Computed example of a mutant assay.
Amino acid sequence: MSRPPTFTPPPCARARALSTRRGNFAVLDARPAGTPRGTVLLLPGYTGSKEDFIALLEPITEAGYRAVAVDGRGQYETDGPDTQEAYEQAELAADVLAQAEAAGVPVHLLGHSLGGQIARAAVLLDPSPFLSLTLMSSGPAQVSPGQQERVKVLGEALASMTMEQVWQAIRAMGPVEETPTDGEDLRRRWLRTRPAQLIVTGRQLAVEPDRVDELTAVRPLPKHVVSGERDDVWPVPLLDVMAKRLDARRTVIEGAEHSPNTDQPLRTAAALTDFWDGAHR
C-alpha cells in the first residue's frame, strides 16, 4: 500500500471536483504563481490516491507547471459503481482522456505503477491530448510473480470479507506507522475505495500483456521511464530494457524504491520537470 507522507495538500493546491464528460473526479489542482508553462496530469497506482503526489506538488509548481493529481473512478474520493465491468482497463483509459480534456489539453501525462499502465492504454486509445508520457515504476507487462500472488490473495479476500476486515488483516501483516502519515488517513482512504476497483485492477496487473512495441510506434511523443534504485513490483533491469525499447529517457532516482514520488520527491520532481522542459523544446 502506498503511504504518502501527509494527506494535507500544500498552499499551492486545492481539492476540488474535475467535471468531465464521464463524470466528476476528485483532484488536487496545484497552480504556479504565474501563467503555467504547461499542465501535468498525475495518475496514482494500485491502492493509491491523488495524495501520493502531494510531496511533488510544490516543486512542480515552483518549476512553473500546473499539476492535477487525480483519484480515478472508485479510488478514494471519486465515486464509482460496484460492478466490476466499470473498472476494465478500457473504461479507465477513456476516463483519462476525459480528464485530460477537462484539465485543458494538451497535457503531460504521468502514471505511477498501475497508473502507468492505464496511462499507456489511454495513449494507445488516443495520443492527441498528450505532450509527453512518463511511466513511473510501471513495467512493460504483468507484475512480478510475488506481486501476482499478493493481488490474487487480496482479490480473494475482498470477495469474501468487508473492507474493514481486510484492513485489519493488512495491519496485522505490517504497521501503518512506517511513515509520518496518520494511520487513520490511510484507513479512511482504504474504506472509501471500491472493492470492485481493487479486484479488477489487481487482476489486470497480474495479466497485463506487453504493449511496449505498440507504444514505441506512437510518435512523436516524448517518453520517460522513471523508477527508484530498487523495485519489487517490476525489477529495475526490466525497466531499463523497456526504456531502450521505447527510445525513452531513463531516470533512476537515488535512494528511492517503488514510489520515488514519496521516497525522494525533490529529486523526482527535478527529473520530471527537466524532462517536461525538454519536451516543450
Results as ranks from 00 to 15, higher is better:
residue 61 T to L: 02
residue 55 A to R: 09
residue 66 R to S: 10
residue 72 G to Y: 00
residue 57 L to Q: 13
residue 111 G to T: 04
residue 57 L to W: 07
residue 111 G to E: 01
residue 76 Y to S: 12
residue 108 H to E: 07
residue 52 D to W: 01
residue 125 L to F: 05
residue 86 A to W: 12
residue 79 D to R: 10
residue 103 A to Y: 04
residue 139 G to P: 01
residue 105 V to P: 05
residue 129 P to A: 14
residue 116 G to R: 04
residue 69 A to M: 02
residue 143 V to Y: 00
residue 107 V to T: 11
residue 103 A to I: 15
residue 65 Y to K: 11
residue 56 L to M: 13
residue 55 A to E: 15
residue 61 T to I: 03
residue 83 T to I: 08
residue 146 G to Q: 11
residue 82 D to M: 09
residue 78 T to W: 04
residue 63 A to C: 09
residue 68 V to I: 15
residue 84 Q to R: 15
residue 105 V to Y: 02
residue 61 T to V: 08
residue 75 Q to G: 03
residue 98 A to R: 11
residue 127 P to T: 13
residue 95 D to V: 01
residue 65 Y to R: 11
residue 49 S to W: 05
residue 119 A to Y: 00
residue 73 R to Y: 05
residue 119 A to T: 01
residue 70 V to N: 09
residue 60 I to G: 13
residue 150 R to M: 12
residue 105 V to K: 08
residue 131 L to M: 13
residue 106 P to H: 05
residue 128 S to P: 06
residue 63 A to I: 11
residue 53 F to D: 08
residue 59 P to A: 11
residue 122 A to W: 00
residue 61 T to H: 10
residue 129 P to S: 13
residue 81 P to E: 14
residue 103 A to L: 08
residue 83 T to V: 11
residue 53 F to W: 14
residue 147 Q to Y: 06
residue 80 G to I: 03
residue 118 I to W: 00
residue 147 Q to P: 01
residue 94 A to F: 09
residue 127 P to A: 15
residue 140 P to S: 13
residue 122 A to N: 01
